[in-house]
Design a protein around this nucleic acid. Structure first.
Lengths: 136, 136
DNA sequence: GTTCTTGCAAAATATTTGCAAGACG
DNA sequence: CGTCTTGCAAATATTTTGCAAGAAC
């Protein structure tokens, strides 16, 4: 049993061929990936299979979805939180030029002052700008 | 000339009937509104007209768009920044129960530590949870 | 054999554009 | 008249679901 199958089993996800491939693909990238880009990477696979794979991963908290303002929702595996149950509360960075989206896992979001009786459950924090590749 | 027409003219937007109505509608709500909800409020008006109205407002920096994770982009007029040219860098709150989205203009987002050579240009910060109406 | 997964097709939802008619100055 | 705005229709883009076949145990 590989490391990848371990990760899936740990989250109670049956390690099917497709799921292993998708997880492996996610682990090979430090970016958040869209359904479309994952589909493109596996010409053989069906879009809805990948879609359901990602939804399964998301439900089992193996990945989290990021809405970076492009039309495409992106999914990222967060290495640190991968072993724990806590909610991911870090920033994301979206490059306006190359459209890449990264998790900024080096810092968590600070305490935020909410109006009275408002209660925070999750967050989707996206900073936009230029990444180091595009910032000349 | 009304206050509303003033606001439009100040931003170099010709105050047409539709634009006045949409701006008035936005000003009457403290929430961010979707194209759909605005269309519903004006049964007579065409969706693409409202769409283009909002895009015009956005381009002229009278409103800003918020992607709150629902499928629908929402638009909000921010009173404070309405008179200035600065970029809106405040948090937004999206209620998971009633789907309302609010601008939290009482605080700006803090300094964020970006990776080397990354440059911030805008942000889309959305906190999700329960608003005071839904938090029982 | 029962349950979970996959592939194909198609539905559903929102956004966006083309174009001609109309309003405005 | 020329330009900007509007209304209608249709195109685009994604996400999402139905259903039957197939795989797993």
């Amino acid at each position: 049993m590989t490391d990848i199958e371990d990760k899936l089993s740990f989250r109670n996800i049956k390690p099917t061929a497709m799921r292993i491939l998708v997880l492996q693909h996610l682990m090979e990238h430090d970016k958040a990936l869209s359904l479309q880009s994952i589909e493109d990477a596996f010409e053989k696979a069906d879009k809805s299979t990948i879609y359901r794979t990602l939804k399964t991963f998301e439900k089992k908290k193996l990945v989290h979805a990021i809405d970076d303002g492009t039309k495409q929702v992106k999914y990222a595996l967060c290495l640190e939180s991968c072993e724990c149950e806590t909610i991911d509360l870090h920033y994301h960075f979206h490059c306006n030029s190359c459209q890449s989206t990264y998790c900024l896992t080096n810092q968590n979001i600070p305490q935020i002052d909410l109006p009275k009786d408002f209660q925070m459950q999750q967050a989707n924090m996206v900073i936009k700008g230029l990444c180091s590749e595009c910032n000349n």
